[in-house]
Amino acid sequence: MSLHVDAGQPTRAPVPPDRRHVRRNSPRSFRTWLDLKAAPYLLVSPYYLLFLLFGLFPLGFTLYYAFFTYDLTGTVEWTGVGNFTGLLSDSAFWKAVVNTLGMFAIATVPQMLLALLLADALNKRFKGQLFVRMGVLLPLVTSVVAVAVVFTQLYGRDWGLINWVLSWFGADPVSWKTERIPSWLAIATMIDWRWTGYNAIIFLAGMQTIPRDLYEAASIDGASRRRQFWQITVPMLRPTMIFVVLNSTIGGLTLFAEPTTFYNGNVHGGTDSQFQTVSMFIFEQGFREFDYGYASAAAWLLFLLILIGSLINFLLVRRIGGNK
């Protein structure tokens, strides 16, 4: 990392700015320069270097190979937009897109509402505040795989707890892994269990920045607590909400671990791809079928999907409690 900065200097050092009187690189001015100008870059450089290496390079690399047929044997053939047109007419890809959006909707909407209400509850004064606030973060600490293993058993068709409870009400056992919508529900609960508390804490932090006098004024005017929540808390939380929603959009559209573990680590996502997400589709094409080019193209379409999804959500959330 230091190497990078040393290499970067000589181009700038020989042309010192005019206001400097010392023409030579005296050790002192060099140190001042290093301290004032270079140090901030030096300090942030590890992140950017790593991003370049592990973020930008793979992005470009993926884009490049999205235009090739690139298989396991190493044959690389230019296909132009062939991979993209292939994907757009591939029913399996679209199925994965629908699955991803479906699970995202089922998981995220209740999650946001729950997190908001949870945060509101935590925002009140009560004994053991810190303990309870920390408690809602606990699910985040458990590993995804552990969560998935437990939930997979809860949702077992023949011996699962959920079906057992449902049977009390006379319901037939639900085949959580083969019926499409139930499988989405099962995976959505997994996601919500893990992330609701996390989002609640972020909402809580946002809520604490809302000035108290707003609430006092509203109380004097006779606004109920519910009215205060919808008229003051929610609109004032808008910036926090945008952050949380964008974050969940990115997380939700790149969903991989939960649905994969839900089917024994098989990225096919059920016998008929009932819950195969786009990420799993990419993985299947790239590392099961070894069609790297096709997988790369799919990855870029996912990127587009996330951009569009984020934009829509951003516009939606921005309207919440907008000024009239």
């Binding site: 083969t178 499409r180 059920g270 016998t271 008929d272």
Partner: peptide, 12 residues
Amino acid sequence: ESVVSAIDDGSV
């Protein structure tokens, strides 16, 4: 085999 299983579990 995915299809052979899928006709059994009813998804195809």
